[in-house]
């Protein structure tokens, strides 16, 4: 009697097993591939749409052998009203470009009408945000910028040194893409002025940039940028640069349209020379056009 039970159980097991085996062979659910993508390291892309947030650099770099030609305009102040067509009668501009030596190492040159400034920079991405194995929560970039003021000397009769024309800005850019639409950046910044107006002013100015972007459409984002200068470093008429704008991407171009109280499109200028106050209508409309060329 006992033996019969065992044979019975065995039969049921066999039937169940065979049923399972055949269902496996003929079902679509059979997984032939070991397909676990969590093993893969995936680098975050497109933290920002382009390599500037508004005035300042973003952590984005142009790829190897690509040249990003940039034209940046800032018009006159909006507050003067209709007589100046809200500032459109006046414009300052920077023409320049960023070039990718490698995907992570960029150099750039530019020339601005503000103080007839020639500028150049070098930018290196040393850390990339990624997920998967050995993931990293942030992207890190160092950026060093140098500008040369080429205006005629204000006092040509005294001895003037070429080095007085120079100013430097060094930045550490740390950014994180929090979601597919929202990214933020913090940029501790050191600006060095070889010459300042008087003894009370510091040659080294520390500031902190904060930037963020929120995508509102697939190809459009709203950008925010603020440079906060730590107190007691600079003359009291200076204000912090605050900018708000849109990035609009159309294939090979990125258009950045924005309002900013800074007049200057290069680092030392918008960080230390901004005088306009938003509440006084001392705000300018501006745009950057970026066009990528591939070599």
């Amino acid at each position: 009697m006992q033996n019969f039970d065992y044979i019975h159980v065995l039969r049921i097991k066999l039937i169940l097993f065979l049923a399972f085996f055949y269902s496996n062979v003929f079902s679509q659910d059979l997984n032939l591939i070991d397909d676990n993508e969590s093993k893969e390291k995936i680098y975050t892309i497109a933290t920002f749409k382009t390599n500037r947030i508004v005035n300042g650099h973003s952590i984005e770099t142009v790829a190897k052998n690509e040249f990003d030609f940039k034209i940046s305009h800032r018009f006159g102040v909006v507050g003067n009203g209709f007589y100046d067509l809200f500032g459109l009668d006046y414009a300052s501009m920077r023409m320049g470009g960023d070039f990718g030596i490698t995907d992570n190492l960029n150099v750039g040159l530019g020339r601005s009408t503000v103080q007839k400034t020639y500028d150049g920079f070098i930018k290196y991405k040393f850390l990339k945000q990624s997920k998967g194995q050995k993931s990293c929560p942030i992207t890190g970039v160092i950026m060093s910028h140098m500008g040369i003021n080429s205006l005629k000397w204000t006092n040509p009769e005294r001895e003037n040194l070429f080095t007085s024309r120079l100013h430097f800005t060094h930045q550490l850019l740390i950014a994180r893409k929090f979601s597919k639409n929202f990214s933020a950046q913090i940029s501790p910044t050191l600006t060095h002025l070889n010459i300042v107006k008087n003894n009370n002013l510091a040659n080294d100015i520390i500031s902190i940039g904060i930037g963020a972007r929120q995508k509102i459409l697939t190809r459009v984002s709203v950008n925010f940028e603020y440079y906060y200068i730590l107190t007691d470093q600079i003359d009291e008429n200076s204000v912090n640069a605050l900018s708000l704008g849109f990035d609009i991407e159309t294939g090979g171009h990125v258009f950045q349209l924005f309002f900013t109280n800074a007049n200057s499109p290069f680092e030392k200028g918008f960080i230390t020379d901004t005088r306009g106050k938003w509440i006084d209508g001392d705000v300018r409309f501006g745009f950057n056009i970026a066009r990528i060329f591939d070599f």
Partner: peptide
């Protein structure tokens, strides 16, 4: 691309990132 097929059932799969 990760891909595999069974020469018996003929089932064929592809997966790529």
């Amino acid at each position: 691309v990760k891909t595999a097929f069974s020469s018996e059932s003929g089932q064929l799969q592809f997966s790529c990132l």
